[in-house]
Design a protein around this nucleic acid. Structure first.
Length: 206
DNA sequence: GAGGAGATCGTCT
DNA sequence: GACGATCTCCTCT
């Protein structure tokens, strides 16, 4: 109903290409009872080689093993002890690389997202409320109920998966790049991608 | 609107 | 034992 499922071959490429082309695609949580969906408007690429900010910079560990496995799998981890971040593994098996999903434009299941996010309505405009739902890696995980225990290592290219990425054919008009947000190492790399002018892109000083 | 502080825990050194 | 790919709340302007 939202479009065609992205195949594994889509992810078996350089994370920079995948990050750019994921913009405009739809991240879907479909557990059979309800559907939560958002359009991807902001991503970051993390490379296998020469990228000190990547979790794989110091090699294979039990935590990051999924990033060395087949492409198209979810890598969910906890940051700052309280927020989850969701990545999708890229490249072929044995080569590390991933794309971090940083922001979504809410499309469907908005009321349930608001409940999951515990967005309080008092004193906020509808536009402001929507913005609080899924603008930011921690926020979108909460809005789509993505957790490490439940979703990490999940295959996003499987029709049976309750977490998938689909393509409805809508391509973004203009894509911009910038340095990535919140990292100290490899800051010089322009690996953040976002849809120009989209109001759900996280608004941070860079 | 901007800026600072605190929350909180898995992972690696 | 230190620290991090963040968010929220509070204060000040």
């Amino acid at each position: 109903m939202f479009g065609s499922l992205l195949p594994r071959s889509f992810y078996e490429r350089d994370p920079r290409k995948v990050a750019r082309e994921l913009l405009g695609k739809i991240l879907l949580r479909d557990d059979g009872n309800s559907i939560l969906a958002g359009r991807i408007v902001e991503t970051e690429a993390y490379l296998g080689k020469g990228d000190l900010a990547a979790h794989t910079a110091s090699g294979l560990t039990p935590r990051n093993a999924v990033l060395f496995g087949p492409a198209g799998h979810a890598y969910v981890y906890l940051v700052y002890g309280m927020h989850f971040c969701m990545n999708i593994s890229c490249e072929r098996k044995g080569i590390a690389g991933c794309v971090l999903i940083r922001a979504l434009e809410p499309l469907d299941g908005i009321e349930e997202m608001a409940v999951l996010r515990r967005v309080t309505v008092a004193g906020l405009s509808d536009a402001a409320k929507l913005n609080l739902l899924s603008s930011g890696p921690g926020r979108l995980c909460q809005a789509l109920h993505i957790t490490r225990d439940k979703d990490s290592t999940k295959d996003l290219t499987s029709k049976k998966s309750d977490l998938r990425v689909v393509d409805d054919g809508l391509a973004p008009n203009r894509i911009l790049t910038s340095p990535r947000v919140g990292i100290k190492r490899s800051r010089d790399l322009q690996l953040r991608y976002f849809i120009a002018g989209n109001r759900f892109v996280t608004d941070r000083k860079l």
